[in-house]
């Protein structure tokens, strides 16, 4: 018998035996799996290269489905896969609209008071531990860009005055920047919500005037003008319903902290 026939028989028999084993195993060993894991796994490249730090895509899919892992750890898949996975997870949470990051502080180097220089490690986390790196306001943005480093989509960048700026079209609302910010001034909100009090300081009116020229000094004018849209909580006005915030309240705000982007 010539070699090609022999090789066909060999390959055919090996494949037949093993595919039979797989088929039987598949039928007998069926195991119920969370449908979302299947859905995410189908989107992942399936290279099982472990670059995401998880040993294999199946394990990473399970981690994302159970919420233990962020949707963008798959370097091989890059941005498209991350967006897809985020969508699957996002979709799962019910609302359809996209979420974006908002930075609730506009006190950059010029507008806020800095009482000391800082030589320590150039990260917000370290600066925050070292007493706020000389920034008088103990709630405001330190400007060392931990959020920028954390963002895998390059959707947030520091402007020249040391304040992070969010690029809405790139932001997938994954929340990594919010996690990275030691002062928790970044919030993840639906994209439609555009009116905020861009300050997170709970200092007393006197103290907040001293430390920053664009801080919420808890004067209460905006709350009085549109009570349904705003609420004063511990010396800081917070927007509860963006539609109910009247233009008058925005004009009347003495430090121009309440506005619509």
């Amino acid at each position: 018998m010539s070699t090609p026939i022999l090789s066909i028989i060999t390959m055919g028999s090996i494949a037949a035996i093993f595919s039979l084993i797989i088929a039987i195993a598949y039928r007998k060993l069926k195991v119920k799996v969370d449908p979302r894991v299947e859905e995410i796994f189908s989107v992942l490249p399936g290279v099982n290269c472990g670059a995401c730090g998880y040993p294999g895509c199946q394990n990473y899919a399970e981690a994302v489905a159970s919420g233990a892992a962020p949707p963008n750890k798959c370097t091989v898949g890059g941005a498209e896969v991350a967006a897809l996975v985020a969508k699957i997870m996002g979709l799962e949470a019910g609302e359809v609209e996209r979420k974006v990051a908002r930075v609730l502080c506009i006190g950059d180097r010029e507008k806020s008071v800095w009482t000391a220089g800082y030589e320590g490690p150039q990260t917000c986390a370290a600066a925050n531990v070292a007493g706020g790196a000389g920034k008088a306001c103990s709630y405001g943005c330190l400007g060392f860009g931990d959020c920028v480093k954390a963002c895998p989509f390059d959707a947030i960048r520091m402007n020249d005055k040391g304040l992070p700026v969010v690029y809405e079209e790139k932001c997938t609302g994954c929340g990594l920047c919010a996690e990275a910010c030691p002062r928790d001034i970044i919030v993840i909100e639906p994209i439609e919500k555009r009116t905020y009090v861009f300050c997170s300081s709970h200092d007393s009116p006197k103290r907040s005037r001293e430390v920053c020229s664009v801080s919420c000094i808890a004067c209460g004018i905006c709350v009085r003008l549109s009570p349904e849209g705003l609420e004063m909580k511990d010396n800081l006005a917070i927007v509860t319903d963006p539609e109910k915030v009247s233009d008058q309240a925005i004009e009347k705000c003495p430090t121009k902290v309440l506005f619509k982007i």
């Binding site: 090789s7 066909i8 028989i9 060999t10 390959m11 090996i14 494949a15 093993f18 595919s19």
Partner: peptide, 13 residues
């Protein structure tokens, strides 16, 4: 699986 293996066996042979 078997069909593909046979095909590959043939081509390689």
């Amino acid at each position: 699986l078997t069909v593909f293996s046979i095909l590959s066996g043939g081509i390689l042979g």
